[in-house]
Computed example of a mutant assay.
Amino acid sequence: MIGIIGIIVIFVMVFGGYVSAGGKLGIILHALPHEFIIIGGAAVGAFVISNDFSSIKHTIKAVGMVFRGPKWKPADYRDLLCLLFELIRLARQNPVGLEEHIESPRESAIFGRYPKIQSDRESVDLICDTLRSVSMNYDDPHQVEEVLEKRMEASLHHALHASHALQTVADGLPALGIVAAVLGVIKTMGSIDQPPEILGKLIGGALVGTFLGVFLAYGLVGPFAAKVKTVIEEDGHFYQLIREVLVANLYNHAANICIEVGRQNTPSHNRPSFSELEDALKATKDAA
């Protein structure tokens, strides 16, 4: 919602300010379709050349983040802590019983209580792979933490490709705007014998190309790239929380302490209060 509001503000301020200063939209509207075909088409073509099909799909999907915002909400962080609490408690009480949950998380009753987390492959794989490695005596906390850190860095690098791709397009748009403007000037030179009022409109139409390239770069595509990066990094805290809790578990802290470590490392705007989490954990124990 806030993304839509931002776009509306941009258009109202830019074009509203232009009209209020006495500018005429007619010249812009007349030239806009042709200039947009040149600039937009060239930008799309360059984007396709510089990315493979998988990256193109991923980038198009990522644009929705501008309007949706982060995937993980405060309630999801609370649910994650409850899920990890159940798994850690079961691992200590019945290590053999844990195997069915980490080997078949899609059929697990524990994971099934948290459907949003269960449907996220990265979260499930991160939890199950780490707990599985512990059962194989791969229990050096520092070693596991290093492995998890490298794994999340790789995942974050891949996820940020969409933001980098959009930023690359944004960086190229002003130059493409100049290309469109130069073509407009060439067109104008072909009508050099026309009266000044006609030449003025032709020159104005040519300058629309420069305007459109800069406007799209710094008013839309650039901010889109920045927002996608912010959302991806925000969602990355969810997976970092998994790392913090499971590494704390390797140090053999009490289950409640492991969960409190995770709660303290949750971003403040998503962090459940101590009492809220206590109530959720109590409900989890009662339901078990």
Rank of each mutant, 00 (worst) to 15 (best):
P115D: 10
S133Y: 07
A254G: 12
L212Y: 02
I49W: 09
F111T: 02
I5V: 14
S20R: 06
I110H: 02
E197T: 12
L84P: 00
F67Q: 06
Y18S: 03
H34M: 06
E276A: 14
T284R: 05
G209D: 00
M1Q: 13
A280N: 07
I88G: 01
I49E: 06
L131S: 10
L148T: 01
H237T: 02
E244W: 01
D235N: 12
F15P: 03
M13V: 14
L90A: 04
V179E: 03
G17A: 13
V214R: 02
T230E: 12
V124I: 13
I5M: 11
A43K: 00
F238S: 00
V144P: 00
D125G: 05
A248M: 05
K201C: 03
H161Y: 07
D286M: 13
R132T: 15
G97Y: 01
I49M: 11
L156R: 09
V44I: 14
F111V: 04
S155E: 11
C258V: 06
S273W: 04
I110R: 01
Y138V: 12
Y18P: 00
A225L: 07
G23S: 08
E103D: 15
L87V: 02
Q143D: 15
L246N: 01
P74R: 14
N256V: 13
L131F: 12
I4F: 15
R106F: 08
Q118N: 06
S133K: 11
V182L: 10
I38L: 10
I110Y: 02
R132L: 13
I39W: 00
L207S: 05
E107L: 13
K282P: 03
R89F: 02
K116S: 09
A62Y: 03
P272V: 05
G16W: 12
L202T: 05
E122L: 14
V48G: 07
A254V: 09
G97E: 00
I203A: 05
K71M: 12
R243N: 10
A42Q: 09
F67I: 11
V66Y: 06
K187M: 11
E103F: 10
R243K: 14
V214H: 04
K229F: 03
V245I: 06
T130D: 04
A225C: 11
G262W: 00
A181L: 05
N94Y: 11
A43E: 00
P272Y: 04
A75S: 06
V182I: 14
